[in-house]
């Protein structure tokens, strides 16, 4: 920002991302609270137990976790001024995020054909809105990562830009931990 010292010794943008993440906790918290409060209150099927595909979602959960690993390795590479590694790992985040999103698209369309639509029952409404907004967050993250990748290819992602990558990374990891929670409370605890 400026040369003015920061009170906590934390760059403004990094603190801002954390503050935003604190706020996002309440956003996803409200969505999850609604999902859980309405659980088992649908008057018609399909129910979660009938339709949720645990093996598929376990794989995409694993994929998203590994994207977080790629993210920290990308940050590490940018800080070390290792552009080649940075490109590889940012590319890795994009690919893994893309696979997760593809899995979600497959899942949604599969559910739709099985008769679980947004309007079918409360489960459908709460499930699609919760996971849909999470997917939207992943999509924004993928676009953000793609922007960083373009910057890397143009030689504009040196160590002086590592804060850009770190802030983007914080967002990405947060989206990942939200999925950790969703995977548990929506998919595994039925």
């Amino acid at each position: 920002m400026s040369t003015h010292a920061t009170t906590f010794g934390v760059p403004h943008r990094k603190m801002a991302m954390w503050v935003f993440i604190g706020s996002e906790c309440m956003f996803f918290g409200s969505l999850i609270a609604t999902y859980l409060s309405y659980k088992g209150k649908s008057v018609v099927g399909p129910t979660p137990a009938e339709i949720l595909n645990i093996p598929l979602t376990s794989v995409s959960t694993f994929v998203l976790l590994m994207s977080s690993l790629a993210m920290v390795l990308a940050l590490d590479a940018v800080q070390r001024d290792d552009t080649r590694q940075a490109k590889i790992w940012i590319g890795g985040v994009i690919v893994l995020g893309g696979i997760f999103l593809a899995g979600q698209v497959y899942e949604f369309s599969h559910f739709y054909h099985e008769g679980l639509t947004l309007q079918q029952n409360l489960f459908g409404s709460t499930f699609f809105v919760l996971t849909g907004f999470h997917g939207a967050h992943v999509t924004v993250g993928v676009i953000w990562m793609a922007t960083l990748l373009v910057m890397a290819f143009r030689g504009r992602l040196g160590p002086e830009r590592s804060l850009d990558v770190e802030v983007a990374g914080l967002y990405w990891h947060f989206v990942d931990v939200v999925w950790i929670v969703i995977f548990t409370v929506v998919y595994l605890i039925q």
């Binding site: 706020s23 309440m26 409200s30 969505l31």
Partner: peptide, 17 residues
């Protein structure tokens, strides 16, 4: 504001849907 607005945001999203 940061902790309260997300709740109405979600409530309004449901209403919009």
């Amino acid at each position: 504001m940061l902790l309260a607005f997300p709740a109405i945001t979600v409530g309004l999203i449901f209403l919009l849907f």
